[in-house]
Amino acid sequence: MADAELMKMVAEGDPVSGRRFADQYQLLVYNVCYSFIRNRHDAEDVAQEVFLEAFRNAGRFRGDAKISTWLYRIAVNRSLNYIRNNRKRRFWQELSAVFDPGPSGSNSQEFEMSGDTTDGRLKNREQKSVIGEALESLPENQRIAFTLNKMEDLSYAEVAEVMQLSLSAVESLIHRARLGMQKKLKHYYF
């Protein structure tokens, strides 16, 4: 079924097409959201919001672009909005997580085995987020272009389509993002 036809059926409220649409694109949407948000639960929430927006606006999809391009655009915008709106909340979450990592924390075993204390936890969490922090510190456009190209494996042309920029602009953004990442990671790891 072609993209436009599938979206037409989704817009009409056909549950079979809706399920097919959700099943086909959920990984794409979730992984984009997760690449930006870096928290599984929050990314799942935002991915659901992306799909609800897509279902609501399915009738507006004209088939000029691919469904994936359209979804990438919604997912990136939603994720960045989420990050902007939740900076304060995240600060308090991270602070409480440092002092109370909980039994399900992925690093709790390491702490127990090495007998680490709060200092160890802080260091571990700091190390854990270096690559993510480096990515977050990039200017927004560079971050989007880099994430879509490297992590989501989109070509430069596809990134240009999602970001509605020229190919040369995307090339420049990715090049600058690589240099920025290199500078930050080198500073930390060497």
């Binding site: 990984l27 979730y30 992984n31 997760y34 690449s35 870096r38 928290n39 599984r40 990314a43 992925s106 190390q127 854990k128 987020s129 270096v130 690559i131 993510g132 992590m151």
Partner: peptide, 11 residues
Amino acid sequence: DYETSFADRKR
């Protein structure tokens, strides 16, 4: 670091 930071990507 990447493996830890992006461990929850879904396959």
